[in-house]
């Protein structure tokens, strides 16, 4: 897989998994995840061309276009505050 294909695959995979967690909006969760864990060039790559993205992943990209720092949807994207103790990493 080249980088572009890999990134599209990753976005679709994230979207698909969030899609099974019915208590959260899959597109919003996918956007939140990409915002918090992807390097700018990875984001720019999928922003540049929506080809191959699933509908949920494409919706997530659209959300990110509107707001590069969307609201957090899971505890995995809620990190410790500067002086906060006891939470942990999200890989």
């Amino acid at each position: 897989m080249n980088q572009r294909d890999h990134l599209v695959y990753m976005a679709n995979q994230i979207a698909r998994n969030f899609g099974t967690m019915a208590d959260m909006g899959a597109a919003a969760a996918t956007a939140d995840h990409i915002a918090m864990f992807w390097d700018p060039r990875m984001k720019a790559n999928v922003f540049a061309d929506a080809a191959g993205l699933s509908p949920v992943a494409a919706a997530a990209v659209e959300l990110l276009r509107g707001d590069p720092h969307p609201p957090h949807q899971t505890q995995a994207t809620q990190f410790n505050a500067g002086d906060e103790v006891g939470h942990s990493d999200a890989g």
Partner: peptide, 17 residues
């Protein structure tokens, strides 16, 4: 190796360890 531990336990318990 254990990055999913971080993600999974943080999501559910609030801390990954």
């Amino acid at each position: 190796c254990h990055s999913p531990t971080g993600y999974g336990l943080k999501t559910t318990f609030g801390t990954s360890a």
